[in-house]
Every structure is written in structure tokens, then in C-alpha cells.
């Protein structure tokens, strides 16, 4: 019943799905303050405080602001400018962490959702579709291309599929295209971090 504090969705539809996914993504998206002016974004990859962001966002010292507003100093675990990835550790536990998807299973036309902190907004969402699969001449070999609006500050934030699973880390804007580092690339990067094979600046 309306007014009793419970919301019953009489038409469980696209808008409520999108709102639910956005809510979940916002809980795993942090602000990352690098040495440069302006905040970027980051993704809580593991609930015990592992944050993944772009190498170009977390240059030098990095501070992290959690979704609730708590600000923490971050320790740089690994920094990989070649793949534009960085892994940060924060002293926190029990955080909501990303549900990670398989970026190799994406198809052209699949819906994708980005959450980030573009131009100072916090937790802004944009929606689009996968633009193309495969290498793109002008943008390196292995980035996800999405027909999706990004702005500076989205960098390092999650790109998620229609289930809300993170399938990429938004990294670049090329014209009107969004380019993201695939989640499978992130998994390989974190594998190198675990083996101690990743560079620490």
C-alpha cells in the first residue's frame, strides 16, 4: 500500500532495474584523489580494501573517499601505465565490492552502465551499448568500446553490464566513444600483483 513505507513495484521494469544497478554500483565506486587536481573514480574490487583505478588517475600519492564520505589515505600496491591500471589498498574492511563479470562474453549491442564522478559530480550514471568488439586502430589493442557518454572524472570508475557486473574500468574518451579496460585485463593485472610481478612506483 502506498504510504506504509514499503515500495511495491507494480511494474518491475527497465527503470527500476537500472536504478537498482546504479545503487549497487554507487556503493562500490570511490573517489580517487591523485597528485593532480580533480578527482577520478575507482572500484572497490575486494571488500577488504583493494581498489582498482586507472594508472593515470592514481599518480603518486592517492587518497580515497568511500561512498559514505569517509576519506582514507591509500597505499599504492601496483601501477601499470601500459594497461592504465593501478591497485590501491585502503585500511578498511567489510566494504561492498564489485561483482565482476567476464569481459570476453560481451556482444555488440549489449547494454552497459557507467558510474563515476564526472566533473565533480559524485555517483553519476550514464547508459549506453557496446559499440564494437575487437581492436581499434586508434586506441590500442584491447579496450572495450562503448557508445556511452563519459566525462573527465569517470576515469577509473566501473563499466557494468545489464546484470550490474563490472566488465571494465572506464579509461578514456575518444570522440563520443567510451573506452574501458576489460575486467579480464584487470584480473590478469591483479594476478601479477599477487605474484609480486607488478611494478610498484
Amino acid at each position: 500500500m502506498p504510504g506504509d513505507g514499503e515500495t511495491h513495484d507494480i511494474r518491475p521494469g527497465i527503470d527500476s532495474d537500472l536504478a537498482a544497478i546504479t545503487g549497487r554500483l554507487r556503493r562500490i565506486t570511490v573517489q580517487v584523489h591523485g597528485s593532480r587536481a580533480g578527482a577520478g573514480s575507482g572500484v572497490i574490487w575486494i571488500s577488504s580494501g583493494l581498489i582498482v583505478t586507472n594508472a593515470h588517475v592514481a599518480r603518486g600519492r592517492a587518497g580515497v573517499v568511500l561512498p559514505g564520505g569517509r576519506a582514507l589515505e591509500a597505499r599504492m600496491l601496483a601501477w601499470d601505465p601500459e594497461h592504465d591500471l593501478a591497485a590501491l589498498a585502503i585500511d578498511a574492511d567489510g566494504l561492498s565490492a564489485a561483482d565482476v563479470g567476464d569481459s570476453d562474453s560481451l556482444r555488440v549491442g549489449d547494454l552497459v552502465v557507467a558510474v563515476g564522478n564526472p566533473l565533480g559530480l559524485t555517483g553519476a550514471v550514464t547508459a549506453g551499448v557496446i559499440h564494437a568488439i575487437g581492436p581499434r586502430r586508434s586506441a590500442g589493442p584491447s579496450l572495450i568500446q562503448a557508445d556511452l557518454r563519459l566525462a573527465p572524472g569517470n576515469s577509473g570508475g566501473p563499466l557494468a553490464d545489464a546484470r550490474g557486473r563490472v566488465i571494465g574500468i572506464n579509461a578514456m574518451i575518444a570522440g563520443r566513444l567510451a573506452l574501458a579496460v576489460p575486467s579480464n585485463e584487470v584480473a590478469r593485472f591483479l594476478g601479477r600483483v599477487r605474484r609480486g610481478a607488478a611494478a610498484v612506483p
Binding site: P12, G13, I14, D17, L18, G109, D110, L111, A162, R163
Partner: peptide
């Protein structure tokens, strides 16, 4: 998540 996923699959 059915509606959004089915739209994604349709597209």
C-alpha cells in the same frame, strides 16, 4: 534484473 537484461539481450 529481468527487464534490463532482456532489453540488453534484445539489442
Amino acid at each position: 534484473m529481468n527487464a534490463l537484461l532482456s532489453l540488453s539481450n534484445d539489442l
